[in-house]
Design a protein around this nucleic acid. Structure first.
Lengths: 332, 332
DNA sequence: AGCAAGGATGTAAACGTTTACAATTTAGGA
DNA sequence: TCCTAAATTGTAAACGTTTACATCCTTGCT
């Protein structure tokens, strides 16, 4: 492995001068620059970032922690994050936790051990105490799923309003029995969406029945079995609001398999790419994924520059996307 | 930022002894270990990996380069890779290139600059010359998409045989006009699948017509517009073999939109999670995604241990998965 | 000629670790 | 009592950079 010392030896200059050439310092003569650069090209020398980082104590890297790649939601988020990072000279590295605590912990150690300059968390399993401890010492920002009581910058949408609008859309189609498929865990994201769902029902004078809420995994299977559970009740709904498109797709799948898709409407949430292509399209709530990613990095950069920068909470706009999976209530 | 020196000062021991405690060296007394560990706990000291890496010149990190996260194909791959890495004490960091050369280059620099110990490439845009240069100096392995003439370890499936079997399945259903939707780029993956497609046709005595092959992006839109192109010919096919499930889904979507889905069969490739849920299910070829990920890391680890370890090429078993999108030819 | 200023380069310390080697202490055996 | 070996700890170099500071050499001015 050829190091800056080798280049120094080969050129006859000192390592300091070589370093200056590498870093485009103005205080080096044209002649010298030319000769050093030539030697660098002829060997295949690449500055060792470990050495550089150690000296400058900056890695120019941002860690983005994702729960899983099952969901294409994060594809756009990551594009936004990548663009924002690149514009600031940073690089995004992704860690996929598969929701395992020990894996998440091992990635977080990258932050503690100075291998990355900051971290964007999405759907973390950390609680507010962990988060406060972490965010007190290191740059951290939170994306999409807020943790109430955690003192850090975050970017999300108004989940209450969005869920309310989604439910209202179903109500406007004449539906009166509307169920909800929500996540298992008590994240603010689930709570907010559930609250929005309830507010819509109550404002429309419909009875809010907690037994109409089924908890499931945020994936196809979860939606499928949740729909099964709902539709085999003695009082099945005519519409189902799912907390994620993946669940909505599973739900529609169940309905189609049982010839119920014409009678029962489904709304999803997120507007992932495939929602447009599934069945006749999944009606859903669009999240500005690219912008969420972008802003999460932007907020993080503020913290990287100054760990004491004030925390900010960004609420980005959402929007209803109506497609084929929601239709007027037949029995209505 | 508290360093090992601070711990040394606080305990009264030397940094060497503290280091030994951290690294669980046996040559340290119980008494000392206890006292040092106590102080470490009371401060929130975390060893700086940059310092450690610099000294030991090993980062215990593996970079996995992915083209995009649009495709859930890589979700399972990454799970396999993560498990294999973890078992060996390594950590996976993911880089998403979005198929941009400068982004890919910026991640590859992590390898050159010793920030990761090795790299798994998937669908790289590097050619065999780039790859040979890289793999000559650094541990690199290739996943899924082989580059002919590149001298490195790789793991894949038998794409020729798999595509042949997929096509044969359509033939066995009575189809005679079978089109193919394939990727744009001349990757071995596309070539192999195209060859398998042709072999199946020729062995069945059907004429191989290159104009029946349409090139498209590996995503929904690509499949959609490819299907449109094919179905608006004067001699539309009764079956379409797509080189990826994402394209197959787009193709089926087009067919449904035009009431053609009962007449025209579609086969995909990959067996991504959502293929089971789309429409009546996408018939496809299963790739052992988890194992591909696992083995790609395994092969890489061999190279990390010894850069001169012999190159290996692993071919993992595939399997046909028949679902609702392929059915007997109506006109037959 | 003498001097100051500025440009180019070198010297060496520093970043946070690990580890070979040296030094010290302790115990046991003759 | 003295010597050896083992156990424990310390010293200092090394990993590859960057950079403050020092040094040297021009150049131009008086």
């Amino acid at each position: 492995m050829v190091s800056i010392k080798d280049i120094a030896a080969l050129t006859g200059y000192s390592v300091a001068t070589v370093s200056r050439v590498i870093n485009q310092s103005p205080k080096v003569s044209e002649e010298t620059r030319r000769r050093v650069e030539e030697v660098i090209r002829s060997t295949d020398y690449h500055p060792n970032f470990i050495g550089r980082n150690l000296r400058s104590s900056a890695s120019m890297k941002i860690l983005m922690l994702l729960p899983t790649l099952d969901n294409t939601f994060f594809s756009d988020v990551l594009r936004g994050a990548g663009d924002a990072a690149m514009a600031a000279g940073y690089q995004i590295v992704v860690g996929v936790t598969n929701k395992k605590a020990e894996v998440e912990e091992s990635y977080i150690s990258m932050l503690r051990s100075c291998q990355v300059d900051g971290m964007v968390l999405t759907n973390t399993i950390l609680d507010k105490f962990d988060l406060n401890r972490l965010a007190g010492s290191y740059p951290v920002s939170l994306l999409s799923d807020i943790v109430e009581g955690a003192d850090l910058s975050c970017v999300t949408i108004d989940n209450v309003a969005a869920a309310k609008e989604a439910t209202e859309h179903l109500i406007s189609l004449g539906h009166r029995r509307i169920s909800m498929v929500n996540g298992y865990y008590y994240r603010s994201l689930s709570i907010d969406r559930e609250n929005g769902y309830r507010m819509a029902l109550e404002q429309a004078g419909l009875t809010y029945d907690p037994t109409q809420i089924v908890r499931a995994d945020y994936n196809f299977k979860g939606g499928y079995s949740a729909a099964k559970k709902l539709m085999t009740r003695k009082d099945p709904p005519s519409a189902i609001f799912c907390s994620a498109d993946s669940m909505a797709i599973g739900a529609v799948r169940y309905l189609m398999d049982h010839g119920l898709d014409k009678q029962v409407s489904v709304m999803g949430f997120d507007n992932v790419q495939e929602s447009e292509y599934f069945f006749n399209g999944i009606s859903t709530v669009n999240q500005p994924k690219y912008e969420l990613g972008q802003q999460s990095v932007q907020l993080l950069l503020e913290k990287i520059q100054d760990i004491h920068a004030p925390n900010r909470r960004l609420i980005l706009p959402h929007e209803l996307v109506i497609r084929g999976s929601s239709h007027p209530c037949l029995g209505g």
